[in-house]
Nucleic acid binder design. Structure first.
Lengths: 199, 199
DNA sequence: TATTATAGTGACCAAATGGTCACCTGTCAA
DNA sequence: TTGACAGGTGACCATTTGGTCACTATAATA
């Protein structure tokens, strides 16, 4: 993505919309954050709502790439230990990446005010990750690494508690370490419960 | 709670703050919703922020009563079937009660904008219910109804997925039936996995 | 070189919004 | 009866905010 003003506006918009909500964001602050005057924004977008929509467009593209196509599946781990390591790495990233944190905040705080955000929120928090892990678990069951269960239900039981603790990280960043430790504990406990005993 | 104007203002405030957020709520609409003029509000509260704080006070009292004291524990079920029935009843209530729905919406959308909401959100979505079910599970383990596991971890694994689906109900009310069915499925599946086989 | 499109500025506007104030009215106590 | 007070009203005010416009500067182009 080029570093054009048009894109920089969206970057700043993500920050402000995520921190203060759509209604709580004003264009003067947005422009000031970019070292621009408010009227300059209107050279690139027609209105506040236009900026908002462009930001959502960008997010939809991002999610379509990340969750939409099941082509780019994550590799199926060769052991339960590897699954734990991979999960923790991915969670660590998602909990620390500023852009993703802001995206989650925006989805949470605006999910009831915008139909597109609503859809994205369900995709992000519920179906997206769960479906991905369903494929992973299915693969691991076929490899004889996990007990044969409904992979969809299993993936949901796995991702929902993790998601709850990720939310805690967003809400109370001071407790990130504590939350990550709890995630680790949960992940080990969960995998241990469904690990297929080696012959 | 008496039906005084002061209380009615808080009832209406919950609706508007939950639907539109703090910033998105204006006092004219609030007053109009009560058939009052805006200036009448100032006979009962000093400012918009004062109304907000009074609403949070009320919510804190409510949560303190519901989660705070571990005196009023729910009864320990005498069978896993009873646990399932009780859980589903409680979830059904929480998913359909208008006041509780609004409260959840408010906690979600304002959790990053207000320190007290932040604390309440963690209590509501994470610790409150989980701690309650930890006690229930502990009791059921002592009765020999559930396998002996860490009750806290087990309760968290139980409540977090339910909570995720409750959020879905709030976000997409059209999918309430579907979500409730999934909750039912999850609950049966979860309890089956941890049920102590009868001798 | 003259022209034109692009990006940016500051002044300005109208609507929305939180808050204040003088005033009204019914109730209740002295 | 009268005075105080609680609860309510509408007019008004200052600030915030999304949006417009005339104007400028610069770089590319005919």
């Amino acid at each position: 993505m080029e570093n054009t003003t048009k894109n920089r506006i969206l970057d700043e918009a993500l920050i402000l919309f995520a921190e203060n909500g759509y209604k709580g964001t004003n264009l003067r602050d947005l422009a000031a954050g970019l070292g621009l005057s408010k009227s300059a924004l209107y050279k690139h977008y027609e209105s506040k709502e236009d900026i908002w929509n462009a930001l959502l467009d960008k997010m939809e593209v991002y999610y379509a790439r990340q969750f939409g196509s099941l082509d780019n599946l994550p590799p199926i781990p060769d052991s339960c230990e590897e699954l734990i390591t991979l999960s923790m790495q991915q969670i660590h990233f998602t909990v620390h990446d500023p852009q993703i944190i802001l995206t989650r905040k925006l989805l949470l705080t605006e999910q009831f005010h915008d139909a597109r955000v609503c859809r994205l929120a369900t995709k992000h928090f519920l179906e997206g990750t769960a479906n991905l892990y369903a494929k992973v678990f299915e693969g691991m069951m076929e490899k004889g690494l996990l007990k044969k269960e409904d992979p969809v239900l299993l993936a949901f039981s796995y991702t929902a508690p993790i998601s709850a603790l990720v939310h805690l990280c967003d809400r109370e960043p001071d407790r990130k370490a504590e939350a990550m430790e709890k995630i680790h504990q949960f992940v080990r406990y969960f995998i241990a419960a469904y690990k297929e005993e080696q012959a």
